[in-house]
Amino acid sequence: MEKENKVKEMEKEEDVKIIAFLCNWCSYAGADAAGTARLRQPENIRIIRVPCSGRINPLFILKAFSSGADGVLVSGCHPNDCHYTDGNFYARRRLEALKEYLPFIGIDKRRFSYQWVSASEGQKWQSVVVNFVKRIKSIGKNEPK
């Protein structure tokens, strides 16, 4: 019985699906750098490349959740480093508002996070992903009970 539970637990953990929206100019390259440097990353992440974090409509994130994602991660350039000058400043406002709103419609706030990772920060990308996946796994799948 205990063993069975353990297996179930593991299956549950393995299954979590995370959608990551990455800015083409920084985080996407950062993730690439992490791969080239052979830094091990969890496989739960599905990456979608966007031209800028300012391109991300909060509805992308909500759509991901409503289509069954267990977590959504957004990553863009550090403030003041945006390729288009101010895209990430707009993004920050939108994403923060969305994040505060999520619990109200029954989605755990911790399932969503936005981060700033530059093209050279492969190491940082790895730790962001590892920590985020760990967190989502600890919450479990986003399944209605």
Binding site: P79, N80, R92, Y114, W116, V128
Partner: peptide
């Protein structure tokens, strides 16, 4: 450029 009320989350 600096948002007083937004506390960014650090995942590292």
């Amino acid at each position: 450029t600096i948002e007083e009320n937004i506390e960014e989350e650090k995942l590292t």
